[in-house]
Amino acid sequence: SFLNIAARPDTPGRARSKRISKPETATDDSTGSISDTNGKSPSETLEQKVERVAVERARTARLLQQAEEDLSTATQRLEDADAVRRHLLENVASGGDEARRRFATALHDDALQLLTAAELQLERIRTDARKTRYASQLDQLKQTMKRVEESLRNLLYNVSPAGLDVHADLDGAIRDRMVALKAHAGIEPELDLRIPRKVPAAVRSIVFKNISEAVNNVEKHANATRVTVRVGAADGGIGVEISDDGTGFVVAESMYLPGHLGLVAMRERAQLAGGWCRYDSEPGAGTRITFWVPERI
């Protein structure tokens, strides 16, 4: 056996046992590494490790540079998109105001003036026809023309952007609108206004337009007796809630129906500014409109 051979020093078998238990090795003079004669791969040298780390470092640096370039490009695209959004928002606001001005001017200087002249002529005819069989019909015509005039003047107030030009005092502009609502429709307003002192003009414009739109809907469609408006600072912007005790409606069925396009305009106006707008309503349960716009747009 192997043990017996190794125990006998005077036999040739001892040399053979040394060759079996200690494989020969060879030294690679070029690298200083040691490899065995069986062809196994040598262990990684220090120089190889340094070279591998250098390669990985260079690769990481390239990836980091590419990531920085991609981030810079994405940032620039976001800034460009935000600039376009701001420009579009300004155009929507100014374009809408300019269209309202033209319409209000034409309504006041043309239609209402002609209607006033027609009322004066009718009054003279009524005086001359007081004792004729046409007197009763002329009285009815006078009442009809009076209602037409009131309707047009109410429309003039609603579309006129004059309030937007002077509403550096947003609180006062909202209160004036609610006073007009009570005078025209007999709807009792309830206000909770906690508006910050420094609100950018663009934000004031959006808030006032959306409140006016909501109040117009209450006046025209809600058959309400009371409307509540709450405005205050919220989450880095302005939060608004308008609620009424009117007939309500099915939101999903009414968003795009004639007479309810103002709801779509309110939502789009708020979203364009970076905010949101929501509607909660059911038939017979009144309506609650909430929206929020950031302080900086």
Rank of each mutant, 00 (worst) to 15 (best):
D235W: 02
D171Q: 15
Q140F: 10
P12D: 12
A83Y: 08
A273R: 03
E44Y: 00
D82M: 14
L138Y: 12
T132P: 10
L155C: 04
L272G: 12
L78G: 01
A67I: 07
V215N: 01
I20K: 07
G259Q: 09
H87W: 12
D10E: 13
A265E: 01
L114S: 13
I187H: 06
R175T: 14
H221G: 02
L107I: 01
R267N: 13
D171F: 06
T105M: 09
A58N: 06
E90C: 06
D235V: 02
T37F: 06
S35R: 08
I125E: 10
T225W: 02
G239W: 00
R85M: 00
E119D: 02
V250E: 14
A222E: 15
G259M: 08
N216Q: 07
V84R: 12
N223H: 14
M145T: 15
A6R: 12
T60L: 12
V84M: 14
R175M: 13
Q66G: 03
R177G: 01
G248M: 09
E253I: 08
R226C: 10
R177L: 10
A61F: 12
E79F: 04
L115M: 10
P42K: 15
G239Q: 06
P189I: 05
E56H: 12
A61H: 11
P161E: 06
T31M: 00
E268M: 06
V251P: 00
R177S: 14
I238H: 01
M266T: 06
T73F: 07
D97G: 05
G246V: 10
V250Y: 07
L170V: 03
V215T: 13
W292T: 00
Q48W: 10
L193P: 03
V264W: 00
A180M: 13
D192Q: 14
E24Y: 02
P23D: 11
E47T: 11
T31G: 04
L46S: 08
V293P: 06
L138W: 11
R278A: 13
A180K: 09
G275W: 01
L63C: 01
R100K: 04
G236D: 13
K142Q: 14
L78I: 03
Q140E: 09
